[in-house]
Amino acid sequence: MMSETRQRTRDKVLTAAEAVARYVRPGAVLGMGGQNIGRCPMALTHEIIRQRIGRLTVVGCNLSIGMDQLVAAGLVRRTESGSGNLERFGVTFCWRRAIENGSLEVEDYSHLAMVSRFLAGEMGAPFMPTRSLLGSDLLPATGEAGKAVVIEDPWNPGQRVALVPALQPEVSIVHVQRADPSGNIIIEGFATHEPEMIRASHHVIISCEELVSTEEIRAHPERTTIPFLYVDAVVVQPYGAYPTSTYGHYDYDAAHVAAYQEAAREGSPAVDEYLRRYVWGCATFDEYLALAAGSERLIALRRAMEEML
């Protein structure tokens, strides 16, 4: 059983390497923030790959490019999610291949069912009822009780309801716009499943575009999405979601997402070469940004976002 002790210091700022080494252990249940091409925690994902922390169970609602790269690196034994894809850029190809060749266990839910599991987890409830899943093959065959069970609604006899088990990831990684050194975080724009998942997790590593002062947080407490109590480590990493977008900061880089997808679709050796070049070949995420995008491109993505809003 893992320790429930969260980091209680006022200054939780660490490098990605330090944060990942401290809080992500082999075999962990890892919660992934972001969705599709939006705010995926890429800097933290790269660091997990760099440190080759394996046998992970990756959980989230939509699992996207970050999860696929972890699978490509051979670090994932199981996923639990509502979907795996990058929409217009295709499915998560390494994930698909690993499922099809039997090297990856997969547990499918709907997105609402996954949110409901995090909701139970964040409230300390053992499970959550939902009327999603009913009648579908997402419900397990009779007798397999681990994934979901259907009961009669105690208050409405004859009415069926599905119960999904609480999910409390051992550690979650999320990229946000702003955080202070103690771990108060501000998510701007859409927030997907992250608030529920963060509060459900035993440990949380945040990467952020901007470090703000605690004074600033206290001046506008209504802007705080999640208070510091849930957060263990804060990694300051501008463009930390690249090549996915960060609302209010920069657009996604379609060319680089497509380049990864092409390698992922092809599989070995193309995707190994991608990881060698862009992850293992880079000592830090800033090195990767310089190699994959360069400052001009990064500025253009920032402008594209400004123009859009």
């Binding site: 091409i37 217009r88 949110v115 927030a191 997907t192 608030p195 809003l309």
Partner: peptide, 23 residues
Amino acid sequence: ISVSDPKVMHRAVKLGTLREVLG
């Protein structure tokens, strides 16, 4: 091109969470 594309968020009245819309 995606539900997380900033283009879908343009002039929304609320940018919330999956739970708010799916639940």
